[in-house]
Design a protein around this nucleic acid. Sequence first.
DNA 1: CTGTTATGCGTAGACCATACGCAGAACTAG
DNA 2: CTAGTTCTGCGTATGGTCTACGCATAACAG
Lengths: 253, 253
Amino acid sequence: MTAKKDDSGPALPAAIESAWGLRERPPKGPRPGLTVPAIVDAAVRVADTDGLAAVSMSRVAKELGAATMALYRHVGSKDELLLLMVDTGYGPPPGPAAPGDDWRAGLTRWARAERDVLRARTWLLHVPITGPPITPQQLGWLEDGLRCLDDTRLADGEKMSVILLVTGYVRNEATLTAQIAEGSRAAGVEPGEMMPAYGRTVARLIDPTRFPALHRVLASGVLNQDDDPDDEFTFGLDRILDGIEALVYRRRS
Amino acid sequence: MTAKKDDSGPALPAAIESAWGLRERPPKGPRPGLTVPAIVDAAVRVADTDGLAAVSMSRVAKELGAATMALYRHVGSKDELLLLMVDTGYGPPPGPAAPGDDWRAGLTRWARAERDVLRARTWLLHVPITGPPITPQQLGWLEDGLRCLDDTRLADGEKMSVILLVTGYVRNEATLTAQIAEGSRAAGVEPGEMMPAYGRTVARLIDPTRFPALHRVLASGVLNQDDDPDDEFTFGLDRILDGIEALVYRRRS
DNA sequence: CTGTTATGCGTAGACCATACGCAGAACTAG
DNA sequence: CTAGTTCTGCGTATGGTCTACGCATAACAG
């Protein structure tokens, strides 16, 4: 029953606290040859080159020239390592919107920045999310998103919902395009030929009388033309921002 | 170089073809004691009771009173089993919209139906999606969604994008609420106390001068009041439908 | 009755995360 | 300089995962 320094939170993992700069190293004992940032960097390097599936504790240890169990002195579990990987994988947030930008331009820039990160690091999409963001960079991204809405008169809860809506869309869109890319690589097909092949497969399977709407869409050949994936992204984002704009307009004055 | 029956598709997995009713059993050999539907049902049962993580080949085999390797006669891999689990896990699609419903009411019903499924079977959200839908029920859901847009004058590609947008939102929202529920259960906290605890943790970590917008939102206490999760879902869905409505309106006539 | 074929499943291999405990390094106190 | 303390690195071992391979057997065709 000793008094704890801080009982306001539900026992944050040790590595998270050290990511926030809390927690000083005790002066005793041998100098650690490994550090948490070095481990996380090595893990990110493995994920960048060989994908998230290649990230095992032994593989990361090998990358560092250390033994597998040495890592467990610095991270409590593999899940904790994944959490830290996501944090550094996202990198620093894109910064506040340009002075002349309104909320819509700012949020567009913010969304595109996240999309760019997810396109460069598709393994981020495969990390199972276990909870709301608590790492420094993650909250930095959230902060920059919220700031875009500063000039609107949305309620605080609405602002949060709007940000969740946009980031959810970005993640979803990035997941879909990444799946096409990975699927085409796995099947040995050119990326542009993936969706047409999928369309042909579905057309072969379905009965046009039971799936009339789907059949019509397939027959129209939408999947055959490989349009700019950027257009697809922009289309969905603009629909969402249109919906938000209607709300912002209603909350004006 | 023998001529194949069907070379228009890129080699569909065997279990998928049998799910579509193609592929008849050869009359030779011993009667199979196991069937694909029985295996999938057993796997779904395990996931329903003990979560997706408990679904291992040996566990499913035990559920059936069979040996682990017996399953591999019927499903090609665990990933294939997961694909089939998703198909039966979603269940039959909600059916076409009621006659008097416009596209918005229909899509709302459709989205709520998916949300209800994902709320009852949260393990569906943990299955890593590996590609576009190809199983019968999955395409049935897609069909019912597309039919809601029949009366609009959207282009075929736009209809598809709209459906992707809505289903992506539903999945995302369901993932977030499921995370809160699972997190609270793991931490031994009451569900209503989860977000306030999170808010307190973040408030303790961040520097108000570096995270002003976030600090303001936290200080407003949005996370403390536990509002109906249905309201949160409806808020986001209405924003998206507002955005779609603007497009439908523009494409009228 | 014989040959063919498909099923069930036992064995075994290659991974994986991680609990536990020991040897030794680096500091502090005397 | 010595003794004690404490923390690091890591070796060993356990129990779990998926699945490649091959054998015995059951059911049919001729």
